[in-house]
């Protein structure tokens, strides 16, 4: 759904991907409130069951993944990774109910990649102990490789964001072409492709984005 309104003679157009982004944010906030409320009322002597059990399995899986890829001393990044997984997972699956996925907008994926890039640079700064060590780390192993090192560092967020954007966007374009080509017969063929493009590809890209983020951050903290 696209929103269009006029403020003081200036037309403002809000694209449907941004609108769906806010839908995802509201949905996840409500979800978080419900989980928070339920987990405070729960009796810890009993076995977890039902809805809370599913949430605990998810949290446990992400914690184990972070522990095995980043090590025990980087467990403080687990909440960030879990946020990424939740947000990207839900926003890639939004295509199943006929909405445009927010991740098919380059601004969304690029801002997520820039968050990761900022964390990596800050962690690099911390581990190299100050600006001298940080700048010196670019001249490794030889001084004349400095431009290549800087370009390689700048290429990380670009490749990270384009990977997610390209996958989701191309899936959306193929689905749109199919729907317009087949017309009324589209429901015969598209469910299988929705399963591939939205569920399989979307969840795979979620996993890969989180995994690459963890690898970049753990590379900066070593």
């Amino acid at each position: 759904m696209e929103l269009q309104f006029t403020i003081g003679g200036q037309e403002i157009l809000i694209h449907d991907s941004i609108f769906n982004l806010w839908l995802v944010i509201i949905f996840l906030s409500i979800f978080a409130f419900i989980v928070n409320k339920k987990i405070k009322e729960v009796d810890i002597t009993e076995e977890p069951s039902g809805f809370l059990n599913a949430v605990e399995i998810l949290v446990d899986a992400v914690n184990n993944l972070v522990r095995s890829t980043m090590g025990e001393n980087n467990m403080s990044f687990a909440p960030y990774i879990f946020t990424l997984v939740c947000f990207l997972g839900v926003s890639n699956l939004v295509g199943l109910i006929g909405l445009t996925p927010p991740t098919s907008d380059y601004s969304v994926t690029f801002s997520l990649a820039m968050i990761t890039f900022t964390i990596v640079q800050v962690m690099n700064f911390k581990t190299q102990k100050g600006i001298v060590g940080y700048l010196k780390s670019f001249t490794e192993p030889f001084a004349f490789l400095t431009p290549i090192n800087i370009l390689g560092e700048l290429g990380n967020p670009i490749s990270l964001s384009f990977r997610l954007f390209g996958n989701v966007m191309s899936g959306g374009i193929i689905m749109t072409l199919l729907y317009s080509a087949l017309g009324y017969f589209a429901p015969l063929i598209t469910p299988v492709l929705h399963g591939y493009f939205d569920v399989f590809s979307g969840l795979l890209q979620t996993f890969i984005f989180a995994m690459l983020t963890m690898i970049f951050i753990s590379g900066a903290t070593e």
């Binding site: 384009f162 990977r163 390209g166 795979l204 890969i208």
Partner: peptide, 16 residues
Amino acid sequence: LLGQAVAETTGIYGLV
């Protein structure tokens, strides 16, 4: 899967 995702990057650039 991780290696394939990284190998995919050049193809994604062409697609973009």
